[in-house]
Write a protein that binds this DNA or RNA. Structure first.
Lengths: 174, 174
DNA sequence: CCGGGAGGTGCGGATTTCGCAGAAGTGATG
DNA sequence: CATCACTTCTGCGAAATCCGCACCTCCCGG
């Protein structure tokens, strides 16, 4: 089992195992790390030994790689919940148009705890922000009193969520 | 230590500890389960004993509750990654307008692996869908060949992501 | 008053995690 | 080509964690 592993490693991992950086600063992941991530996307608490068996690595090696991936910020292992069952009954996506510095407005949105998601986009909105609230009053308050109150927010358009159909965390599994 | 715990339980947990269902079918969470979820949102691999100490419960009790929350689908413990570092360089939100049955279109989108997120909304779009792709060609293919090709899709509008500013998983932590 | 169910506790034994020392591969340097 | 520095993997024990189980307590309905 051991020598077999060594053999397979030199055979199909050699070319992809150099962990370089692709110019940006984002770590380049090899096939084994991808496989580890896939395992942890199925079950974030899966034991290192089980992952090792699946990807062909020792328990200790998996542990080191996972720790490194966490340290580098490539992935995080967290509990994710359905907002509805945790008491947040109103959600909305808000499209925002800005005059002037888009990034500073994005930063202001990021600072709001009700704002779950902020992305700068190309298209008829400068920013899309997802809002998670307890009820309609709360949502109204956030959109009208806090977002529209920001200087240089030109206009907003809201899309209240009626039904969430899909929400996956399966990046890298294709 | 033991009697102290019992005392605190009867004092501040009695009223919120009944795990009923709120009419819908969504389980009603008490304060202790919320606290457990918060712990696991900070670190999905935190040991049960440490969680127990933080929320005032034994290791075994925490384990049972976590298992139940997972079984019920209230939460899942998973690895989440930054799409960019995993090789997906193009993302976009697509607003879609439909003539006829919105839900069947939403189901069709849900079936596509490149579609990460599907939500039915009130507002000037019937559906918002988030697309995660490897490159521009891939994105173009998904939007023009696959989404627009769906019957009864009246129109689409794309918002290509320029910069992701915030992405949290901190529901229930407020 | 007496089940019955839900949820907690404590306790061992099996597993897993953790830290560390040694081996092996790679690239740079003289 | 020898060697050094660096990274990553492996193989241990020891410590900590997970897991199943038996028993207890509380609460509610018959």
């Amino acid at each position: 089992m051991h020598s077999e592993h060594v053999a397979s490693r030199s055979a199909d991992q050699k070319d992809s195992s150099r962990e370089s950086r692709n110019g940006n600063g984002t770590p380049q992941l090899d096939a084994v790390s991808l496989a580890i991530i896939e395992q942890l996307q199925e079950d974030g608490r899966r034991p290192y030994a089980a992952i090792g068996k699946a990807v062909g690595l020792s328990e200790a090696a998996v542990r080191q790689r996972v720790q490194k991936l966490l340290d580098q910020g490539v992935m995080q292992i967290v509990a994710v919940t359905d907002p509805l069952t945790v008491g947040f009954r109103r959600q909305a996506m808000v499209g925002i148009n800005v005059e002037g510095d888009v990034e500073s407005i994005a930063d202001a949105l990021t600072a709001m705890s009700e704002v779950e998601y902020v992305v700068m986009t190309a298209g008829s909105f400068d920013i899309l922000a997802e809002i998670v609230c307890e009820d309609d009053d709360h949502l109204l308050d956030v959109i009208n009193k806090r977002i529209r109150a920001l200087p240089s927010v030109r206009s907003t358009e809201s899309f209240v969520y009626l039904k969430l159909k899909k929400q996956t965390y399966m990046w890298g599994t294709r």
